[in-house]
Write a protein that binds this DNA or RNA. Structure first.
Lengths: 199, 199
DNA sequence: AGAAATGATCTACTTTAATATATCGATACA
DNA sequence: TGTATCGATATATTAAAGTAGATCATTTCT
């Protein structure tokens, strides 16, 4: 609406997309209705501080009032911590989240197997490469495989998937060696727990 | 109201007091009614982004959404630029502003005199010592003297006042030598112009 | 004692954010 | 082709922010 709120709207949308969240997912986390999030991100509403705080909290952001003369320094810090993902990265992030969910949704029986645990560990470690991850296709196939594993003959298939995951993780760990080591950890890792925590 | 808004409320009040503004003065600058500012600073209202933006703008503040992990760094920057004044300092700042106003309100005739100009220069330079200035009594007497100068026999009295101002300024300039030189300039200087600028 | 400025509080009225819910067209996938 | 999810919109209702303006008790200075 106003000029000042435009930056806020853009910042919120970018933060959400960088976390691979849909508006409906963010709605669940923040308690703000999806329809309202849409209006906010489109800068079509003069939102209240409580709404902004809810969204910011759900996005691991903090609201700050900074002196104008300190603003450039703050912007540079924020920029360095918020390298926005390219399209392929965002896709990959989304698939990674889906894969974790699919794994979590598996029946308890096979969820305790060694294969499932190494799979979970590898998916979890991939979160450390949120910035560089690009393998959306591989992750999508893995997600689908996980989703269908309960239907097929189970354990054997799960072991293969776990091996695939290990392979992808190793590749990421290798590639990260020749990129800056700090930027790789600059984004907060997605956590599957705390699904609907606050109120 | 909410927990998150408490910091905002406190930050706004501190910023206002550090600038030596009353709620009514800030109201004129920001367009937000004084009664509303009172409620906002008391954290008794869930204010809208537009209100917050208006106040922030009038106080030379900027609203920022920063990643949680960058928050400590940002806080430290903000702290270093926003050393809040102690009570005596705030009083002195208020008197300084009043003195500048009193000088500006002087009739044009004596406003052009050399004494008035050196007085203005010295008052202006005192703004560079916003953090350390404590001489509220001296400044109050000076302000009163300026206010009454138009009634008495004028020019001669004004010259004495200008000398007093010079003396205070020199003392401040001397004391600042043995304090950090950067903190002395860390607060934005008050500017008498731009009285009612925005809308 | 009187005058002036402070922040907090009240009234009355208008505007609008926020919510719950449903739906829309578009895109992606089987 | 049918299913699912995406963001954007529409509706109706409720709760509360925002505004203008007066008033109050305190404090400060004449």
């Amino acid at each position: 609406m106003t000029y000042a709120s435009e930056h806020i709207a853009v910042a919120l949308r970018e933060a959400r997309e960088n976390k691979g969240l849909s508006q409906r997912e963010l709605s669940k986390r923040s308690g703000v209705p999806q329809s309202h999030i849409s209006k906010i991100e489109s800068n079509n509403v003069d939102l209240r501080l409580s709404s902004l705080a809810s969204l910011a909290h759900a996005l691991d952001l903090e609201l700050a009032l900074i002196p104008r003369k300190a603003a450039p320094a703050v912007r540079s810090i924020t920029r360095s911590t918020t390298l926005q993902s390219d399209r392929g990265n965002a896709d990959a992030l989304r698939e990674l989240v889906r894969a974790q969910r699919a794994l979590a949704a598996l029946p308890a029986a096979m969820h305790d197997s060694g294969a499932a645990q190494t799979l979970q560990k590898n998916l979890s470690e991939m979160n450390n490469f949120r910035n560089v991850i690009q393998e959306s296709d591989a992750l999508r196939q893995m997600r689908i495989a996980i989703e269908t594993v309960s239907n097929s003959d189970g354990m054997k298939r799960l072991q293969e998937i776990a091996k695939d995951a290990q392979r992808i993780r190793n590749m990421l760990a290798h590639s990260i060696g020749q990129i800056s080591n700090e930027t790789a950890r600059s984004k907060p890792a997605y956590r599957l727990d705390e699904e609907d925590s606050d109120g």
